[in-house]
Nucleic acid binder design. Sequence first.
RNA 1: GCCGGAGUGUCGAAAUUGGUAACCGAACACGACUCAAAAUCGUGCGCCGCAAGGCUUGAGAGUUCGAGUCUCUCCUCCGGCACCA
Length: 981
Amino acid sequence: MNEYDHLKIEKKWQSVWAKKKAYKTGQFVKSGKASAGKKYYVLDMFPYPSGTGLHVGHPKGYIGSDIFARMKRMQGFNVLHPMGYDAFGLPAEQYALEHNISPKKAVEENIKTFEKQLSIIGLSYDWDRIEKSGNIGNSYVNAVTDNTEIFSALEWKSKTEKEKQDILMKYRLAYEGYSEVNWCPGLGTVLANDEILEAPKGLVSERGGFPVEKKIMRQWFLRITAYADRLLTGLDGLNWSEHIKEIQKNWIGKSEGLIFSAKVKDTDITIKTFSTHFEACYADTFFVIAPDHELLPKLLEGLPQKDEVLKKAKEIVTRRNSFPEGKNVEEHKEIDGIFTGRYAIDPLGNGNLPIWVAGFALANYGTGIVKCSAHDERDFAFAKKYNIPLKEVIEPLVIRPNGLEDSVKLETPFKERKAVVAVIKHWSQDKYLGVEWGNTGWRGFVIGGIEEEEDAVSSGLREIVEETGYKNPKFIKSLGGMVHAKFYQTIKKENRFAHFEPLLFQLKNDERLDISGEEEKLHKLSWLSPAEFESFITNQDMKIIWDRVMEREKPILNGILNEPSEFKGREVSTVREEIANWLVEKGFAVRQVNYKMRDAVFARQRYWGEPIPLRHDKNGIIHELLEKDLPLILPEVKSYRPTGTGESPLANVHAWVKKGLETNTMPGWAGSSWYFLRYMDPKNKKVFADKKTIEYWKNVDMYVGGAEHATGHLLYSRFWHKILKDYGLTVTEEPFQALHNPGMMFGADNRKMSKRWGNVVNPDDVVKTYGADTFRVYEMFMGPFNASLPWSMDNIIGSRRFLEKVWKVSRGILDTSPKMSRRLLDTNQKLEILLHKTIKKVTEDIENFNFNTAVSSMMILVNEFEKQKKINKKDWEMFLKILSPFAPHITEEIWHELGHKTLLVTESWPKPDKNKMKEKEVKIAVQINSKVRAECTVALNMKEENIVNMVKILPAVEKWLSGKEIKKVIYISGKLINFVV
RNA sequence: GCCGGAGUGUCGAAAUUGGUAACCGAACACGACUCAAAAUCGUGCGCCGCAAGGCUUGAGAGUUCGAGUCUCUCCUCCGGCACCA
């Protein structure tokens, strides 16, 4: 065979590998020992079997995890690397509805397509871990059994029926409740927030684009909030990208604050508020309550305006419901509220504060009631609209960034200075005097220190004359309270903490003294219109003063505290802990931690999901099914369409309802939260996985899948896994130790691959034309694994050429004729160094999912091999081993041509030999004043002195050094030598 | 608005973490082979310049002998969160 016939080679080896079960997971023996080495669980997020099949984007993640799994296997790990399908859930059901077939049948058919497509890529899955295609649907029905055992586990733990009920309702990990949900009449179901979109005409479902509205509905919830803190702290130990961790952190939304209690005047009600910005609590002048707060009607009891307020509250709620929670709030935001007529007694002794209903208050965050002040943007805006009195306790403080960092490092103290800021208005025009400091480039107003025993006004008047020469300024007014600034005085080289007193002056006329030349150089003056002034000012503190001149009201969010007197003069940002302790000690407040995350709705009014193994009795009490009644299998139904009433199709199944069985089904994320445990022990008929087996496999070591699941699947699985651990059913705190997210594959037009754009590329075609190996190498070579890139039919040729080259070099080794033979046992030292360096790099790159650079370094190596007349066969074989995970077929073929009887894919991974990586000579750069002027090859052990002398006489160097004095020589071993002249 | 990430040739992208910017690949140009084309092989390929040389990592400053990399300000793009008190 002389041609590289990928079709033949790939077909051949795929069937050999399958026959020899090359990828079979090592047997786990019940004694607790595995037959193979240390375990390694490599998992892909399973695809949901859509009707359109795979496009070239899907396999990217699978190829990455496959390469990783192959290397781990060759390194001697007992690798578990299964594949399956995410069959339950909305997408599959929606597809079935559209094609008017049963979901089960649709799933089975689609899986067949997927299997066929996956099989030709040469992925090293252990297919024995799932039932053969055709029975896949059944295995998912079996999975229903397993989900049942979550509740069965609770059952086993408790001895009596009563206790069982207690566990469910007292700990209430799963609880029944009523909640407002996104109701979609078109799909006849409830949708999650991420399943809906906002369209011009209102909310619509992501699938199908049907309108969505809010509706109160009976639900099952899982109390994920009880695990909020563990979900947060658990992130620290995970080898995930910071990016995904960050998303989960934001989603959990932990915030630490204080709870204040306040009695409501003329009632026996006490209201509580949650506050995280309690440093400014002495500024609080009013309360707001959420319009849908359960306390509101009681609060209004006995007031004449009760109906009016409730009507307004209802209006606000209706409006709020017309847009999705958390989506485009900015667009829909409107300051809206009404005074309740009640007052609460300020716990800090600041009198009776009015309680308002406000649209911005949320009933389900904190306590649903907020204590409001001038020092919060929203509170401020609300108060301004309704003329609620405000009180300021913070004076603004600005930290000018310029150079400050540097000065802080020097740990020099801040020198405090009182100064007047004189805003000077023109005598006849609407213009203001701008000052530019020549030495710093700062632009603003006239500023001068206030001397002792001098008041701000007279100081200002004096400074104006001194700095500008204008003889007749007149004091107009004070521009509010002090403004503070910290900055680095570059001229005097010291930290400054300035306290500015802003004052407004106007000139009576243009009479002016002749100011000295020096003063003029220091301050460049210009008359500017208000619009010009806006862009003229450089510092934030001066901008605050300018805002006051223009009478623009803005809330002060950070600065220097005035009250309480115990903290007067302190910076808000530094007193947080102290002031919290102080408030708690005084008995004004108690500490509280809040989370943004809400409990997860665990119910769908659909057919195609696991049924919930619960029974409602005549008295409305909920019971778990007895063990003998399990598994609870999804019944065959005539119509699996949503009923449209909001109830699940199961509500139409007479036998089901008669038994009192729960008619809601589990959401799509139920199965995906723990399927990976089932794959540890897939044939077990009794439990989802044997305890000893779980103790061996523990959890997934390497998980590969889309970043879009960051707040869905990846969070729910972690939650679920922690529950299972608490019940002693799993052994680790976290399900997925390491995670990599493949980037998306766009079409050649840089748009998402979709039928709609006609830019879908089918992997089958690519594999047929170029081969699976080329396809695999190309997908990894394109760019970083996690980057989203457009598919290119042009660029793939490079990867094919690379493999052709590998093929060609192999021909040379195989050809034993004297003329062609490249086979030689003598070692080519240069090549050997490169080979071992490449082995090291490829090993590390695979470990870190840097596949693109791994391929690149192998290309360099092959280019080098190709140039050699003589190649050591052993060296070439080592290279074949590291290429094998990327291109398993071609390397296996060559391996056998070279005379081996074993399978390359089960060979052991080569280890780079440190002794064979040491270079003796290196090329270093010769720089003069940091510019490269020459290159020079030196022995690695050569002394600096000798190198300097050797390099100096190079003509290219001498040219630049002649007639100049060498001030300094910097030598970095093995890198460069730099002459500073 | 807040929190992340990024910005480098014509394009996909590298850069041992402060040490020769642009490895590898694609595209392109020229040459060889060929009747010809494709494939293949060879050469070139950041920008300006005949050259010597100069310039170049979104813009501007700073630290340093030396900055794509560190610091600051600003701009643009992507992702996440968003009436969360």
